[in-house]
Nucleic acid binder design. Structure first.
Lengths: 226, 226
DNA sequence: GAGGTTTTCGCCTATTAGGCGAAAACCTCT
DNA sequence: AGAGGTTTTCGCCTAATAGGCGAAAACCTC
């Protein structure tokens, strides 16, 4: 039971890690998580371990990533770990235990087991889902400017995008919608930014390709079954 | 350790099931699989169980799907099952044990545990991957006509598609390429079909959306890290 | 009010998907 | 051999979506 907890901080994608006290990998940094008890279901076990590192109400999205047999541990003992992805909005700053800290995903410290690899895998999943779903809602506050949204998308995707195009595409897909509020123009000078919100804060996917769609249908979002 | 083994037979998507002898769910149909032994890795355990139902050399593609805590079993005992997807080409007819049979995925018999739900989930995954990867290679023989490919895609996607469009899109993406052979025109009368092959028989993904791509890049297939 | 900054909008182009009908290349039957 | 039927393939057009770029809008400070 492991979770890669992602949050965009200062324009870069970060992941939450805690420093292991005990062997194996004492002193290395590991993903939040822990063993599954004998009578527990997957979800409740993850929640229990996650809650010991970060406030669960700060986690806006949770998704199962993959299950691995841990290879670097004691070879006599087989260990299975199921990894999840958890997303935290930029406007939160959860208080975390003293042995726990945020690290930028492209400057990870030495990690225990294959946890660095799990983070890479989770990041790829996040990157893909940002482009064909509305998961973005879990990474930004309820209302936000296009500029804010852009830095979040850029941090996750790892390359520059234009706010013009981001706004157009997301509006056309009806993933975001304008509010009539604007950002109080107190800050840095410049035209006050309009504020937007996500149309729906549950996971929706756009049909990934128009290709092979049944005839007479135009691309729309569809609800995903959990 | 479970596997949803998919094959297109007679133009319909089928899944391999075996009839459970013992309780719980005695007499119900279940996915191939079995318990993980104490010292085993995930992959080898799956291979071992799968081999007892179908020749492993017939499985052209294998991918992890999801892990669930089995809810319908004895509640005192926690059971974790990791499900995989396995794909078999249409030109094969593996011999299977007498307690094992193929069922069309939309006419499943009463299944043990949540196995019907796993098949649905696997089918969704297959459907999605057909549209943005080249997994199709695992479902058809080495060379094939566009008409053959079309029936396979239609069976998996669950709706009609035109061979014209299928051919164009797959050629443009360089997922398939023409061979200079044509189908021996022995069969039903009509122009002999040209034979095609998949350009690459390892998993490649097309960038799911042009959207948010870094500038100056045109959509290309990229290798997926396993 | 001038000059600077940031956001927003409009117009154009590029790329990819989809429809449809004509032509090509085979068959069988007379 | 030719007529008629069948299936595949190709060309041409339209539709939908993504991307670039510059002008205009709406604020700031000086």
């Amino acid at each position: 039971m492991l979770a890669a907890v992602f949050q965009v901080r200062d324009g870069r994608l970060h992941s939450l890690l805690w420093r292991r006290a005990r062997e194996p990998f004492g002193g290395f940094w590991a993903l939040p998580g822990g063993p599954l008890s004998d009578v527990e279901r997957l979800g409740s076990s993850l929640g229990r371990h996650l809650a010991s590192k970060v406030d669960l109400t700060d986690v806006a999205y949770l998704e199962q990533l993959e299950t691995r047999s841990d290879v670097e541990r004691d070879p006599r003992e087989r260990t299975i770990a199921t990894a999840y992805i958890a997303l935290v909005s930029t406007d939160l700053n959860p208080s975390v235990p003293s042995d726990t800290a945020w690290f930028a995903v492209d400057e990870l410290p030495p990690t225990a087991f294959d946890h660095a690899s799990i983070i890479r895998s989770g990041r790829e999943r996040l990157r893909a889902k940002l482009t064909y779903t509305n998961v973005g809602y879990a990474l930004v506050p309820g209302v936000f400017s296009i500029a804010e949204l852009r830095t979040v998308y850029e941090a996750c995707l790892g390359h520059a995008i234009t706010s013009t195009n981001l706004q157009r595409v997301l509006l056309r897909r009806e993933i975001i919608e304008p509010t009539n509020a604007v950002l109080s123009p107190s800050s840095s000078g410049g035209r006050p930014a309009a504020l937007y919100r996500f149309t729906d804060r549950t996971l929706l996917v756009t049909d990934p390709f128009a290709m092979f769609r049944p005839p007479n249908r135009t691309a729309k979002m569809t609800k995903i079954s959990p």
